[in-house]
Nucleic acid binder design. Structure first.
Length: 390
RNA sequence: GGGUAGAUACCGAAGUGGCCAAACGGGGCGGACUGUAAAUCCGCUGGCUUACGCCUUCGCAGGUUCGAAUCCUGCUCUGCCCA
């Protein structure tokens, strides 16, 4: 095992903030395997690259001989966190959550070492709590403390509602830390407050306090807002190779540098930005699928977009009898059958009108055009999608 | 419980009887230019229609009117102030 000082050096890389390094060093010096906590709410079955930033760090801890404690928030997920502006999150059934948790773990283990991971569900201790215990837990935290939290404060200033149970979230999360005796809690920078509450609770329980270990938040594909499902700017770990590759190719150059450090832990190579981006995309596909699929995705991207050779690209096959003979119906059918995307006829008409649709590399802008979709022909729909007539 | 302001399309926001499928901004999509980058320019952005046009939509349910996002009644939800 590496010296505590060396470990700290390794761990610091890529982190946003550690409270405090001195405390962490002290813990590392004890020489025992530390409990490194990371919590997740299994509200969706798949995870995205944003979350892997923390998972990678956790893996690093494991490689240094520490114990990962992955907390699946089955309890918290079931309540449904209604934060966010407009809609209340649908409450999930226990079955859905457990299914999500299962696929979540599967994906997390693409990064984590299962041998050094303890997975626990927080329903284990919360479901059995009675009201008295809950009140008692609540008595440990002040309202002022909770209201100081940035996102609550700003929501109140904006005049948005904050429901009472939301201010319990930090407490719930903090109690998790007590239950698993966390030495370190990992999280994004937006977790600072929650993790600090964990420290408070641990102190009250006369326990050593956990170190707060924050990772930067990964920006989503738009390059501005943090990667999240609801903003639809994410790359899912389970996205098919071509899609994953394509999404990465669409990011800005600035963002690419960041992805290199946060997702690969490396600096961006000093090549042409486009080559650097292809390399980034290839490696991410390789990591979450396989080396071969990474190479294949790169090759396919090259034929499709760099050489603009749709004829030799891998495209979904759509039987000609589904397409009909008018272009509008064909486009709609191609979206549904090739990509499971529902477009209205108006959408399709717009695409045709605006010159997005091509049949056999010829732009079709006349929506009255009657075409024969011969087998093997390529129908281009938009920038990224095309189908082959089967 | 009392008072008061509000609920408009993906989001923000205008519109307060007909000229409203609803200004404007953002986002999204498409085109040109590119490196599926950035920047810029142009177009589109409820459904059906080649089109004329038709249909559904302005929190929900009723009502007034030739005609309602706009007026009336009730309900639901939210902010703020008071208790």
């Amino acid at each position: 095992m590496q010296s505590p000082e060396a470990q700290l050096e390794i761990l610091k890389h890529g982190s946003a903030q550690i409270l405090s390094e001195a405390e962490l060093l002290t813990k590392l010096r004890t020489g025992r395997a530390l409990n490194i906590k990371l919590g997740v709410d299994p509200t969706a079955p798949d995870i995205h690259l944003g979350f892997t930033v923390c998972l990678q760090k956790l893996r690093q801890f494991q490689d240094l001989g520490h114990q990962a404690v992955l907390i699946i928030g089955d309890f918290t997920a079931m309540i449904g966190d209604p934060s966010g502006r407009s809609k209340t999150r649908p409450q999930l059934s226990h079955d859905t959550i457990m299914a999500n948790a299962k696929s979540f773990q599967q994906q997390a283990f693409k990064i984590l070492d299962p041998a050094k991971t303890r997975t626990v569900f927080n329903g284990e201790w919360f479901e059995v709590m009675n009201f008295e215990q809950i009140i008692r837990l609540n008595s440990r935290v002040t309202l002022q403390q909770m209201l100081h939290r940035e996102d609550f404060r700003s929501r109140m200033e904006r005049g948005d509602s904050v429901r009472l149970h939301e201010i319990q979230y930090p407490i719930i999360q903090g109690w998790d830390s007590v239950m698993v005796k966390a030495d370190v809690e990992l999280g994004g920078t937006d977790q600072l407050f929650n993790i600090l509450v964990g420290r408070d609770l641990q102190r009250e329980e006369k326990m050593p306090e956990q170190v707060v270990f924050l990772m930067p938040l990964l920006e989503g594909l738009d390059g501005v807002q943090k990667m999240s499902k609801s903003l639809n700017n994410y790359v899912g770990v389970t996205d098919p190779p071509a899609e994953m590759f394509g999404k990465i190719m669409s990011i800005s150059d600035t963002l690419m540098a960041r992805y290199y450090t946060l997702l690969l832990g490396q600096t961006m190579p000093d090549t042409h930005p486009m080559d650097a981006k292809k390399e980034l995309a290839r490696r991410l596909v390789a990591q979450y699928h396989s080396q071969e699929e990474g190479d294949a995705a790169l090759e396919d991207f090259n034929t499709r977009f760099s050489k603009k050779d749709l004829d030799h690209a891998e495209l979904p096959l759509v039987p000609s009898d589904l397409l009909g003979s008018d272009i509008i119906s064909a486009v709609v059918a191609a979206y549904v059958s090739g990509f499971q995307i529902t477009k209205s006829r108006g959408d399709a008409r717009r695409l045709v009108e605006q010159g997005s649709v091509q049949w056999q590399s010829e732009k079709i802008t006349d929506m009255k055009a009657v075409l024969t979709f011969a087998s093997g022909g390529v129908l281009r729909l938009d920038k990224t999608r095309a189908i082959r007539v089967g």
